[in-house]
Design a protein around this nucleic acid. Structure first.
Length: 575
RNA sequence: CGGAGCGUAGCGCAGCUUGGUAGCGCGCCUGCUUUGGGAGCAGGAUGUCGCAGGUUCGAAUCCUGUCGCUCCGACCA
């Protein structure tokens, strides 16, 4: 592609709406254009990057035997009512009506549609297993779209659905997708981790997320330094302490703690450590009052509470509710004689007795509380978030925390949708069986953003070669010189002959503009040809990632380029 | 949904307090000069000041309403 003929508009200044690097750079390079909040269009450069990602995904999906189809984004409400998600999904489901007032939605995901196809097309065990996928727009009316392509209301997703005769088959399909995802993200030259994850509103029995590692990621993941364990903190399991201290404390008594609300304040006031306190958090779980107890130095993980109750919605109680349930202002709730429908305690709290708790009375705490003796604890469960001192739940090794961007998610769904939508087949014995399902998504547009998030510097994007809209940018610094231009054209067709995507900067611009734009748009390999270099018989080459420059001789250029290309790719961990 | 902020040229912004000719930088167009890290000079084009209503002789500016956008939080494969 010749830059003089390509529509490219780069911005010098940072658009005020963008905060994070990928959003800023996608706008500055003119790769995307916002239409309205959370809805973006792709311009030539951006669309090329998107297609590169898509192509790699398609190749790896096809390799597993999955078949690409294309369903509409518009979906009839009936199917969603049948699965129950029309009511369960909430305002994020983008609903619309046709002229006759019939309900539809724009698909946020396609379990219903794919299950519907399969239940009408598949009737025999001979047709299974089957895996269908598509690359298509998804719509989620996000409460707060943000960060450009990271969290948009319309986005591009590859979604695949597997259909198997039994659980073993479904596990094999899941494994095949998991492996395919590893290959996809490896081929994209991204640093990523597959982690154990919460299965959220898609449902199902287990799932893994694929996280691209980046500081600006919205998720936190824990990863064991010694074994393979890695999980989203939302889901990472905590181990109860090994030792147990059953010594029964003396009877509890009230202590006066005027205006001491927080754990820190109370601990300091009573000269005890925060880990000797119990934090009593009051929650509304699907409309029921619940108290969740964790050690004073721990953080409650609301997702674990939600999963424990298999609840739809969990929220912190309002100050009014706290007062109504505990009889005291915020900061003094405790588990002794608390009027709530359930009290659940973190596993760790079973390990010892003699706690400091809130007194359910203003300015009052209790000491020497025994959960077993003094409180009605409904159940003990893993409720807290891990912290840096926690051991790995698998091997007890040490954990590290990092930020990640979720670019892929694989779920084993089991019978969730086949039961609600009655997707069945006849087995060898002529008996009707439910199809066992899995579903697998990759946020294609988010991958492009994540890739930039992981690979950029002050000057612009550093695209990994497999994602780069162009692998090489060839800048002709002297477009008015016939010799230089002839040489540039010669190199341009030579490189294209090698199957590379090359962008020839043949604009009548000053060198500085060309250098800045080359760095900004982030082609992994930059070549510069100008009168000076030509006189010396060389082309300058710059590795965008490392910044390393070298001179390639025009005599024997092809060999010198091949060697250089190899070092550039090696820098990306590519063969 | 709660809190905060912002809507003025393609982009970044000033002007609003104290009402009176709509501005600056970048970008864009023309010409000349320039040409190895976002050139210089000269000339030029581009605005329903988000929208609607109100106050006023007169509103970008004051008042009311409304829409949009962004950030923090809540929420979220």
């Amino acid at each position: 592609m010749r830059l003089s003929k390509m529509h490219l508009r780069t911005l010098r200044e940072v658009p005020s709406e963008a905060e994070i690097p990928s959003h800023i750079l996608l706008l500055r390079t003119g790769m995307i254009r916002k239409l309205v909040s959370g809805v973006y269009g792709f311009m030539p450069l951006g669309y090329r990057a998107l297609q590169k990602v898509e192509q790699i995904i398609r190749e790896e999906m096809d390799r597993t035997g999955a078949q690409q189809i294309h369903m509409s984004a518009v979906q009839p409400a009936e199917l969603w009512q049948e699965s129950g998600r029309w009511y369960a999904y909430g305002p994020e489901l983008w609903r619309l009506k046709d002229r006759n007032g019939r309900d539809f939605c724009l698909g946020p995901t396609h379990e219903e549609i794919f299950t519907d196809i399969v239940r009408s097309e598949v009737s025999s065990y001979r047709q299974l297993p089957m895996n269908l996928y598509q690359v298509q727009h998804k719509y989620r009316d996000e409460a707060r779209p943000r960060f450009g392509l990271m969290r948009s209301r319309e986005f591009i997703m590859k979604d695949a659905y597997s259909f198997d005769r039994d659980d073993e088959g479904a596990d094999a399909s899941y494994r095949a997708m998991y492996d395919a995802y590893r290959r996809v993200f490896s081929r994209l030259a991204l640093k990523f981790r597959p982690v154990e994850a919460d299965s959220g509103s898609i449902g199902g029995s287990f799932s893994h997320e694929f996280m691209v590692l980046a500081q600006t990621g919205e998720d936190t993941i824990v990863s064991c330094k010694e074994c393979e364990y890695a999980a989203n903190v939302e889901r990472a399991e905590s181990l109860p302490p090994a030792e147990k201290d059953d010594a029964e404390p003396p009877a509890w008594e009230e202590v006066f703690t005027p205006a001491q609300h927080t754990v820190e304040e109370v601990a300091t006031f009573l000269s005890v450590e925060p880990k000797n306190l119990i934090k009593t958090l009051l929650l509304d779980v699907d409309g029921k009052s619940v108290a969740a107890l964790v050690r004073g130095d721990r953080e409650l993980n609301e997702i674990k509470v939600k999963n424990y109750f298999k609840a739809g919605a969990v929220r912190m109680a309002t100050p009014e509710e706290v007062t109504a349930w505990s009889g005291a202002p915020v900061g003094f709730a405790g588990p002794v004689d608390l009027k709530v429908s359930a009290v659940i305690a973190d596993l760790e709290l079973a390990a010892r007795e003699g706690w400091v708790t809130g007194g359910n009375k203003a300015d009052t705490h209790l000491i020497n509380v025994s959960l077993a003796r003094d409180c009605k604890v409904t159940a003990y469960a893993d409720l807290r978030s891990l912290d840096a001192n926690d051991p790995c739940p698998r091997c007890k090794g040490s954990l590290e925390f990092m930020r990640g961007i979720e670019v892929g998610h694989v779920f084993k769904l089991g019978l969730k949708y086949s039961e609600s939508l009655k997707a069945v087949f006849l087995d060898e014995n002529g008996k009707e069986q439910y199809i066992v399902m899995g579903c697998y998504g990759i946020g294609v547009s988010r991958v492009v953003a994540a890739c930039i998030e992981q690979n950029h510097d002050e000057s612009g994007i550093m695209f990994p070669p497999p994602v780069a809209p162009f692998e090489v940018i060839l800048a002709n610094l002297d477009t008015k010189s016939e010799e230089v231009s002839a040489k540039a054209e010669e190199l341009y067709s030579l490189l294209r002959g090698q199957g590379l995507d090359v962008l020839l900067d043949d604009r009548e611009e000053r060198p500085g503009v060309k250098f800045k734009d080359a760095d900004l748009v982030g082609a992994p390999m930059q070549l510069v040809i100008g009168a000076k270099g030509l006189a010396r018989g060389i082309v300058e080459a710059k590795d965008r990632r490392s910044g390393e420059k070298r001179e390639l001789p025009l005599g024997g250029f092809a060999a010198a380029f091949a060697a250089w290309k190899q070092t550039v790719y090696a820098g990306w961990g590519m063969a």
